[in-house]
Structure formats: C-alpha cells, structure tokens
Amino acid sequence: MLMSNTDRPAKLHYMANGFRVLAPGDHVLCAVSGERISLEDLRYWSVAAQEAYASAELATKAMSPAA
C-alpha cells in the first residue's frame, strides 16, 4: 500500500534560493503563527533559523529584535 503525503507535514532544508525536501509531506507550519502553509504557497523562510513563515509580515516580525 502506498502512503499518501496528504495532511502530513514535510521536513525541509531551507536554502537561499529554495528548499530541499528531506521528508515528504504537503505542508509546513509557520514558526510564528503555527499556521499551516502548503508547499505550493511557501514563499518566506529563514535560512539561518531554518524556519518557515506564512507571510512577509510574520517573517519580518520573527527577524526583528524583541522590544
């Protein structure tokens, strides 16, 4: 029986110009909001922190020094 990647989080390695799938899945979770991000919609991540973000605003928030 083949396993489906539907509803399963992927494990990714984030690089400057893309990402590599280390473990198959159909989504990742935003490091700030916990929101589910489909791999097709993933646009924002941190190479240094190896984290994904759901939006530019959340990426900015994650990378800003705490006030």
Rank of each mutant, 00 (worst) to 15 (best):
L2W: 02
L2I: 13
M3Q: 12
M3A: 12
M3K: 13
M3P: 04
S4G: 12
D7W: 09
D7L: 10
P9S: 09
P9D: 07
A10N: 07
K11F: 06
L12I: 11
M15L: 15
A16F: 03
N17V: 00
F19Y: 15
F19P: 00
R20E: 14
V21D: 01
V21W: 03
A23V: 08
G25K: 03
D26V: 02
V28L: 00
L29C: 08
C30K: 01
C30I: 01
A31F: 02
A31K: 04
V32T: 09
G34N: 02
R36F: 01
R36M: 06
R36L: 05
I37V: 15
S38E: 14
S38M: 07
S38N: 13
L39W: 11
L39S: 13
E40I: 07
R43V: 10
Y44P: 02
S46W: 11
S46G: 13
S46K: 04
A48D: 15
E51T: 05
Y53A: 03
A54I: 09
S55M: 02
A56M: 09
L58R: 14
L58E: 10
L58Q: 11
A59T: 00
A59L: 13
K61Q: 15
A62V: 01
A62G: 13
M63V: 00
P65Y: 06
A67E: 12
